[in-house]
Nucleic acid binder design. Structure first.
Lengths: 138, 138, 138, 138
DNA sequence: GTGGTCTAGACCACC
DNA sequence: GTGGTCTAGACCACA
C-alpha cells in the first residue's frame, strides 16, 4: 500500500493517511481482510511519529473502515456505513455543493468539470447493487 | 445577504461565513460590486466575535472573492482566480476524488451520486464561455 | 463535575474519565448544552497529562455524548445512539450475562443481586417514553 | 466444552476463553472436577497460539475457577471467591452501574432492561443458599 | 513481534 | 483563552 504525505498541505498528516487508506479501499486496490502496514513500519517508511500513524488507524477504526487487533495488526473491515440514509445524503450533497462553488470560483466551466467527474466516476469501484450495471466502466 | 452559522458543525465559523459568501456568488445571488455587510453589523447579527468576521473577510480577500476598501466597506470582486491552470485542475480533481471516496464509503451507488451531481450542476451559475474552452488541454 | 481517577485500577485513565462523564449524563447530573471542564483545568485538577484528558473527550465525541468546538470548549450533546436496535440489544444482553457470570462466581445469591439491581434502576434517570411510567422510582 | 472466538470483537482472545469457561460453570453446563481440554488440543482446535490458551487458563486459575495439576490437566475447582464480602459487593455494584449507564446511553428504557435482566436471572444457575443469607447487611 | 497508554512539551488554529 | 496536531520516548498487554 502506497501512502504519500504532503507536509506542505494544511490537512493534518493523520487525516492524509486515513484518506489514502479509504481511497485505496474505494478504488478496490485493497480488499476486506487485507492487512495494513504495521504502525512501526509505516512510521519508519514515512519518517513520521508512530503515534501519528496510530491516530490515523484509530480514526479509520472509528469509521468502521478497518479493525485493529492488538498484538496482531490492522485489517480492512467489511464496508459498512453506520449513518442513516438521510444523513448520508445530506453530507454528500453538501460536499457536491462545495465542489461546485470551488469550481465556479476557479472559473472551471461546466463542461470541463463534468468531464473530470465522469472520469472519476469511471475510475472508482462503486458497489453496484443490480447485476450488469457498470462493469464496462471500471 | 443571509448567513447562517451551525455551531454544532465541525467546520470553523470563519470558514462557514466565507463558504456562504462564495456560494452566493457562485449561485448568482450577488453580483460584482455588491456591498457586503460590515464586520460590525454581521458580528452583532450573528452574535459572533468581530475578529471571526474579520478573519472570514480576510480569507475571502486573500482568495480574490472580495475587495475591502478601508473606510468604505467590502465589495464583491471580479471572479478571477490567481492560481495557475494546472494547480486549479489539480485542486478540483482532488476534491472530486474525495467526493467519490466518501460516496463509496457511505455506500451511495454510482447512479444516485450522478443524479445529485446533475442537480447541482444545474443549480449553480457557471461561467459558460462558449464551446471552445478547454478541449485541447490533455 | 466531580471526576475521580483510580490509578490502581486497570481501566485506562482516559476511559475512566469518559465513563464518569457518561455516568453523570445518565444520572441527569448534567444536561444538554452544559459545558465540560476545559482540558487544561481538568488536567491540572486531576494531575494528569492534558493529552489524556483530550483523548477522553475525543472518545466521548466519537460516541456522540459531547460536542467540542475548538477555541470554545466541550459541551454535552443531545442523547443519541447511532447503533441499530439489534446491535444495542446484543451489546446490553452480553453485558447482563457478564454481570450474572461474575455474580455467580463471587457467590452472590440471586436475591441479593436482584436487590442491588433494583436500587440501581431507581437511582439512574432513564428516558421514560410513555407518561407516568417510573416517576415514583427515582 | 464449546468455545468460540470472535476475532472482530475488541475483547482479548484469552479473556474470551476465560469468559466462556466461567460462563459454562455459571450456567451449570460443567461441574466441579470436570476436566478441561488441554492447552494443545484447544490451541489446534481454535487455531490460536498455545501461549494465549495458557494465559487464559492461568487467569482462570488465578480467579480460583480451575485448578491445574502439572502432568495431569486442568479441572473445574470448587466455586469460591477469595475476595472479601465488601470488595465483592463493590465490584458487582460498579458493574451494575456501568450496565445502567450503557443502557441509558443506548436509549434502552427501564422496562425493557428489566425484562432482559429477569430473563438472565432465570437462565443462570445461582447458588441459592436458602432465604436467610444477606438480609441484614446493608 | 504487535498495538495501547501515558507523559512531556512545542507549535498552531480558532474564538 | 480554547482545543488540535505532532513529536519523542517509556512502559505495558497481547499473540
Amino acid at each position: 500500500m502506497l501512502i504519500q504525505i504532503d507536509h506542505g498541505c494544511d490537512r493534518p498528516v493523520y487525516l492524509q493517511i486515513a484518506d489514502q487508506v479509504k481511497r485505496d479501499v474505494a478504488l478496490g486496490r485493497v480488499a476486506e481482510g487485507d492487512r495494513l502496514p504495521t504502525v512501526r513500519e509505516l512510521s519508519s517508511r514515512l519518517v513520521i511519529n508512530p503515534n501519528t500513524i496510530a491516530k490515523a488507524y484509530r480514526e479509520l477504526e472509528h469509521q468502521g473502515i478497518i479493525i485493529t487487533r492488538p498484538g496482531s495488526g490492522s485489517y480492512i473491515a467489511q464496508g459498512s456505513s453506520r449513518l442513516s440514509e438521510a444523513v448520508r445524503e445530506k453530507l454528500i450533497r453538501e460536499q457536491i455543493d462545495r465542489l461546485m462553488v470551488e469550481a465556479i470560483h476557479m472559473q472551471i466551466d461546466r463542461r470541463q468539470l463534468f468531464g473530470w467527474i465522469e472520469e472519476a466516476l469511471a475510475k472508482f469501484k462503486f458497489p453496484e447493487k443490480g447485476a450488469g450495471d457498470g462493469e464496462d466502466r471500471g
